[in-house]
Design a protein around this nucleic acid. Sequence first.
DNA 1: CGTTTAATTGAAAGCAGTCAAACTATGTGG
DNA 2: CCACATAGTTTGACTGCTTTCAATTAAACG
Lengths: 263, 263
Amino acid sequence: MIVLPPQTAVLEHMNPFEHPLATWLHQIECSGKLAIGDREAVLGLPYRLKQFDAGSYLIREGDLPNHCAVLTKGYAFRQKLTGSGSRQIMAVCIPGDAVDLQNIFLDVSDHSVQLLTQARVAEIPRDSLQDLVASRPAVAEAVITLTLIESSILREWVVNVGRRDSRARIAHILCEFAVRLEARGLIEDDGFELPMTQEQLADATGLTSVHVNRVLKTLEAEGLISRRRRHIRFNDWRALQDVGDFSRRYLHIDDHDTLAQTF
Amino acid sequence: MIVLPPQTAVLEHMNPFEHPLATWLHQIECSGKLAIGDREAVLGLPYRLKQFDAGSYLIREGDLPNHCAVLTKGYAFRQKLTGSGSRQIMAVCIPGDAVDLQNIFLDVSDHSVQLLTQARVAEIPRDSLQDLVASRPAVAEAVITLTLIESSILREWVVNVGRRDSRARIAHILCEFAVRLEARGLIEDDGFELPMTQEQLADATGLTSVHVNRVLKTLEAEGLISRRRRHIRFNDWRALQDVGDFSRRYLHIDDHDTLAQTF
DNA sequence: CGTTTAATTGAAAGCAGTCAAACTATGTGG
DNA sequence: CCACATAGTTTGACTGCTTTCAATTAAACG
């Protein structure tokens, strides 16, 4: 576990890859026009850098956390267990996401967050974030906006799980990943690394791992995707979106569909 | 359509049922300690009162609304249509709910909101709400909190639709309604009026109306509930919660389970 | 290498969907 | 007040998409 001293210096022309909160800040900046000093205030938040192994819990349902974690490297997912022991994954967090913004203002966590991969997070004290939001309206606005976008993604997950057949569900979630990763510059030329097992994919889509496997093989046999282990390549981006009933509107990302050029 | 002039007077000891935004304000007050003048600022928001028939759309997916609606009377639901034409309902709004807070900061609506019943709403200009949030940190905090609670409910819907069988899904949604309505004082002694058809219940649970009907009859035959038209009465509140795998934690309502005394 | 975890495949069973029709309540107009 | 229209509920028979169960193969790891 690496612990760094609180970072308070103003970094004016810094490399985005230097500051752990840089990607998160970028999200905030995309969600609203910040005022003078806001940027520095965000980067000046105190934090502790920590590294965790895959499978670690960042929060558990019922916890009363006193900090918020921002993913700087690696992937995580939100999950809940039902009484009968099955699991539902309701969100995947990618690098740059604030993992538990909800804990700024809600006391008891209503779900768990678990790491998909080995990951690095910046833990920010709850108080500091509360103060930041209280003292800087533009940041508050951006935080609300980010929260609203997350809600929009959640609504689409309800649709995916509630009203699409297995083929469309898998296609849809693959499209969502691709677009979200692309917006963070995490897509390689030839596709992307799906950071989850077929069982986790099943828990995210409300299916069984056996069926996920069959669907993936079908999509591959139809020439829509290629797979090499967990690496997914889109052979027909347009067709996959059609199968998945996918439209990027709900992601509220301003960019154009640059994936159309990639694939 | 009734249009009232903007309300700006300070109402200190008013009857909660007099001001259209009173119930919403109550929610805000429950979500965080307001500062001096915040209360009056909320009640002083300009608004237009409108009345709509059941089935009317308050927002449609793709719209760019310039106001936010607060439900003062009646029920509404959020929905999306899939490419194949089926519908998924992902939230039910009850009196006192802000129907489209997301439109304060997101430009294009990612889903539609349709009325379940005849309803009355107070439409607040987008700008006024943006100003309110920008100038009053405690209100901003409360708005974030309300948004976070809505997200929590959405997460539970994903679980409901993704990982519970039909019996549990219906039981769960009935429990959720009861608790939410009870928190607004909308539960009668002998149960509550379900404001939706079995087809809408089906679209909310990812089932078909035929199957919803069978499940309701089963729950009734087992003595868990009684029905008279759409009036639902809980005969065994404890058992229904067990069947529905229901826990009120995700609703983030502070009160104790007063329904346990009622039923 | 042996061990463990994940992916793959086949056969059978089941929960919920589909289709179609009857029934009920409510409202409307003659 | 009754005939009729409409919307919603109820029921039955049949189909099918996914699950379940079980076993095999492949990859990752110490």
